[in-house]
Design a binder for these strands. Structure first.
Lengths: 156, 156
DNA sequence: TATTGTTATACTCTATAACTATA
DNA sequence: TATAGTTATAGAGTATAACAATA
């Protein structure tokens, strides 16, 4: 028994009913968990979410330009520079030249880059299996449909 | 018809199949859309996601401490200070004193704070109706169940 | 004129360590 | 000793403006 007069601020139940009424709140909280686990998953490969995403897109789309990649990742071209610098510095990709446009770079993954990417993607697949353990195919489809409709509601 | 020899880097379809194989990728992209719309929704009230969340929790839990609030929001106590400073500076909340513990503050919303919160929450409700327009109750329940299970998978 | 990549800059969110005053 | 709040600081992610080279 603790001293009644010393009882701390009371382990009060915090009421977050208002917040839990918003779907976006649940999405944010869930995404935080996913992001933390994914960050830890990618760390052994020396990758972050952004560098990993960029590397995947370069591996899967050899020759694409920084502008195209920035558009695909939905980030500013200027913010992509340091990401590409980092991948290039580790010799995971190269900045090749586009034949008919001397302004643009043709981004290509090196063999090292492709191999690292493959391993990191495999780790991400494990990460997803861990996070979405009890997710059956039908529920997964429903989830993806909702998320896509949200993403497509952007300009409406 | 454009000049064949001048055809730009080709409006190539970027292949993002690998990324779209990850549920987390869809969640991130959807959340970006939600966040952008929510930020714009809160701007007229001079609130950001974090200040709005803090204000709601203070309105709904009068007297809670900064430590309790930080725990509820899952952010560091140190990062909460500027948030509370901002809300207090706008006289939306006050830092009252906890009776039996002179270390802690008892956070309470002012009348102004409660009124602003009410309006902002109403705007957020509209925002959610806009974003999740075609979401029936059953699908919504499924979505929330999945998100909760992700959040609860934190320490497993 | 417009586009590609770049630099500089600033703002927000996040994480850690160290301090003070209280307990 | 441990806890509440605070300060300082650093690392990321993001957004805008302006520039050189090229189209």
């Amino acid at each position: 028994m603790t001293h009644p007069e010393r009882t701390p601020p009371a382990p009060v139940e915090i009421n977050d009913d208002t917040l839990r009424g918003f779907v976006g709140y649940h999405i944010k909280r869930a995404f935080n968990v996913i992001q933390d686990d994914l960050t830890a998953t990618l760390k052994p490969f020396g990758l972050r979410m952004l560098t990993h995403t960029a590397l995947i897109l370069i591996v899967d789309n050899p020759g694409l330009s920084q502008s195209q990649l920035a558009a695909a990742m939905d980030i500013e071209r200027s913010n992509l520079v340091v990401i590409i610098d980092e991948l290039e510095g580790r010799e995971l990709i190269i900045r090749d030249r586009v034949p008919n446009d001397r302004r643009a770079y043709a981004l290509k993954a090196t063999l090292t880059g492709r191999r690292l990417c493959e391993k990191a993607v495999a780790a991400c697949t494990d990460h997803e299996a861990r996070i979405f353990a009890g997710l059956d195919t039908s529920t997964r489809d429903t989830l993806l449909k909702v998320l896509s409709s949200v993403r497509n509601s952007q300009n409406s």
